[in-house]
Structures are given as C-alpha cells and as structure tokens.
Nucleic acid binder design. Structure first.
Lengths: 231, 231
DNA sequence: TCCATTCCGAGAGCACCGCTCTCGCAGAGC
DNA sequence: GCTCTGCGAGAGCGGTGCTCTCGGAATGGA
C-alpha cells in the first residue's frame, strides 16, 4: 500500500463531501436527488461533479452501498449485544435495530427497499452488503439449531420447494433444515413488510403505540419459528 | 341525471384515452411518467393535456385510483369464487389473486405500494379503495369467527396495544378479537412483503419455484391465524 | 529548473421535463 | 347570426442529466 498522494487525498475528500451533501439532500427532498442541487450546495458547477461520479446513478449506487453497510452495522451490533443463548432476545434486538435505522433514515431505507428506479440496475457489489441483515437473522436460527435450543419444524417441505430452499441455504452458507429456513424467511419478509407499511403506508397511522405493535408482530414470527428465551 | 352533452362525452373519452396511454407508458417506462411523452403519443402538444388534468400528480392520482379498484375487483372476485366455509381456501385464493395482479401490473403495484413520491400526498378518496384487499382478508376472519370455524387465540393482547387494535377494528367495521385481528394484519403484512420482495428485490431470484414458495409462505400465515379448510 | 502531462472547474449547449400564458379557431347555446 | 365557452397550438420559463471544450493549476520526470 503506497502512501496516497496529496491529489488522491484531496480527491477522496471531495468524493466524501459530495456523498455527504447528497445524503443530506436525500433526507430533505426525498428520492429525486438532483446533481445540480448538490453541485450548487458545494459552490460548484454541475459539470464538475462528473469528475467524481460518471453519472447520477453512480452517485446513487455509492449512497446505496453506504446505506446497506450502515444498516448492516447497526443490525449486527444489536445482535452481538445480546447473550448468544437468548435466541428470542437476539431476534427482537435485530428486528428493532432494523426498524430504528429505517425510521432514522427513511429516505435511505426507501432507496434500499422501495420500488426500484426504472432505468436503474443494482451492480453486483451491492448484493453482499444487502445480505447482511437477513444473514444476521438466519444466524440466530443457525446458533439455535447448533446448541439444540431451537427445534426445527416436524414437517419437511414438499419436494420442488425443499430443494430450492436447501440450495438457497447453501448459497447463504447456512446449514439449516429447509422448513426452518423457510420460516426464517417468513420472519424476514414480515419484518420488511412491517417497516415498509409504517414508513410508506398510512394503514397503521391510526395505531398510536407503534413500538408495542411492532414488538407484538415480530413476536408472532418468533413464535412461528420457535425461538425461545435464554435459560 | 341529465343526458351528457356531446362535448361532455368527447371530453370523457379524451380523459379515458389519456389514462390509457399513460397506463401504457407506466408499464413500459416505469414510474417516471412523462406528460410530454403521453401528449406526443396522442399527437397533441403537452399543454393540451392540462385541459384535462391540472397537473401530472392528478393524472397519477387517477391512475392510482383505477389501480386500487382493479386490484380490489380481482381480490374480491377471487374470494367470492370459493365456498364460504372454506376459510383456508379463501385465504389462499385472495393471496394468489393479489400476487397475480401484482405480477401482471408491476408498475401499477409499485405505484400503490412502493416508496411514495416525495412531493406527492395521496388524496382522501384513495383510502377506501386502498382498504379493499385487507378488508377482504379480515372478512375471511370475520366469517370464520361468526360460524365458529375459527378459534381466536387464547391469549389477549397486552393493554396499550389491545385498545389500539380494537379501535382499528371498529374503524374497519369488523368485530374481531384484537388478538385475532393482529394475526390477520400479520398475514396482510407478510403478503405485501412477499410480493414486494418478488417484484423489487433480488433475494428470491434464486428460487425457481416461486408459486410453491408463495403458497407455502401464505400457508404459514394461515396456520398462524388458525384458518381451517372446509368440511 | 523547466516542461509535458494530468487533473479539474467553469461555461456553453443539447434534449428533456412540468407548467404557464396567450392566441386563434371551432363548436354550443341563445 | 352572435356570443361565449372549450380546446389545441405555440412560445416561453426554470429546472433536470449529461457532453464538450477551454484554460488554469498542480504534478512529476528530465
């Protein structure tokens, strides 16, 4: 690793500043990020931005990558803070951390999990960061099966599906009974739906105690999976 | 009701044609609908569109309203086609109809359930059509409780939440035990998450048998609710 | 030290967008 | 037949992403 030249360091600082300004615009104005507005905020002309990002989509991709990793950090830290044996506590901590991050960064959450921008295709280097939250959830299941605290469901999946889910598990490098992994995916799907409804929808605008509602809904999924508390 | 004049009929036809062309553009180009492109397709100049829709958002609102009602029609028809006593069959039919409509109209589904457009606020006359799919689902629960086929969960919800959910049930004009309604909402949330993941995400791009996966996931929620088949 | 190379910001410009305003025409109603 | 209303065309404003050129400045090797 050669020491970066002054130019390289200035350039990296510029890239960081552009991303910071863009993130601020995202939080204020929503998803329609304007390159020209970012440039104006930095006292530059719009064409100068293109020295650092070849297109608006590339800037968005950079923001998406950072957002995925910020969410992954928050989720993994929340899981790590709970006693390893307390499967149910870890599940709740992970779910709550996801929701908290989403409520604190709604525009970035929408960027990650909202409707895709029509012309935009996520590059391959986003899939690994994108898998961190669901991997944290299935990690709880893996630990539970490993030490016997978590009983897999009695029924196995019917065949065309069992092979699919087993292959998906292999792809995620988790060795779980497919029927259990399917329930974990149900929990992840439910979590995503809960947060999206709370952020985007107006269905539960009439539920004043949203924290309690969220905890109860994730508890339902913890029951479905069979997660137990510690002890 | 006075007979509409020729002018009024021509105008109504124009509005319909604009909406049809706009819907086609939506399906092809995604969410970023261009008024000028619609006008070009109709051989008009862009300013002429404003004779019929005061703004682009109003056109979008009209499309959203039609989409909600199209989805509601499909969902209610699917539920009505199943034996009233077959609660589980009705649940699956309703879920499948929702998914089928979404897969057939991905852009309109994204319009309804995707990330909200930043400056856009849905007017009040969209909430009633928007409630038709979830109302169909809770209708299944209502029928099940009414004829005794569906046993509510034994545990009642803890207090701050129980009152919230009870009030929500009253607002939807369904008299259900709050704990059961909460499970129904879990099913609706799960359904939305499943469809959104399939349409937007790339997590289950690696599940070839998506129909089977969908059916299994909705069956898990039917189990959680306690829905039984007929007989 | 000098010079060629590289990098970068400014500016003009293109095509597109939503939206407003004016103008002239044609049909509807009196 | 006349007036009034509705409608399409056109020009125009400010905004967008993006491209290209130009000139200045810093870099790094001779």
């Amino acid at each position: 690793m050669v020491a970066p030249s002054l130019r390289a360091r200035v350039r990296a600082g510029m890239i960081d500043e552009i991303k910071a300004v863009a993130r601020r615009h995202l939080a204020n104005d929503g998803a329609n990020l304007s390159l020209r507005a970012v440039a104006r905020d930095m006292g530059m002309v719009s064409s100068a931005i293109y020295r650092y990002f070849p297109s608006r989509d590339d800037l968005l991709t950079a923001l998406i990558l950072e957002a995925y990793n910020a969410l992954g950090d928050a989720v993994e830290a929340a899981d790590a803070a709970v006693d390893r044996a307390d499967l149910r506590g870890r599940w709740h901590a992970t779910c709550r951390a996801t929701r908290s991050w989403a409520l604190a960064h709604p525009a970035e959450y929408a960027l990650l999990y909202g409707s895709p921008v029509p012309g935009y295709a996520a590059p391959d280097d986003t899939v690994a960061p994108a898998q961190r939250p669901p991997l944290t959830l299935v990690g709880i299941l893996r630990d539970g099966v490993a030490d016997g605290r978590l009983q897999p469901p009695a029924d196995e999946l019917p065949e065309p599906l069992r092979a699919d889910v087993a292959e998906l598990g292999a792809l995620l490098s988790v060795d779980l009974p497919p029927a259990l992994l399917a329930r974990g995916m149900a929990g992840w799907t439910q979590l995503f739906g809960l947060i999206s409804f709370e952020l985007f929808g107006r269905i539960n605008r009439m539920l004043p105690h949203r924290d309690e509602y969220f905890d109860h809904q994730t508890a339902l999924m913890a029951d479905l999976i069979g997660l137990s508390s510690a002890g």
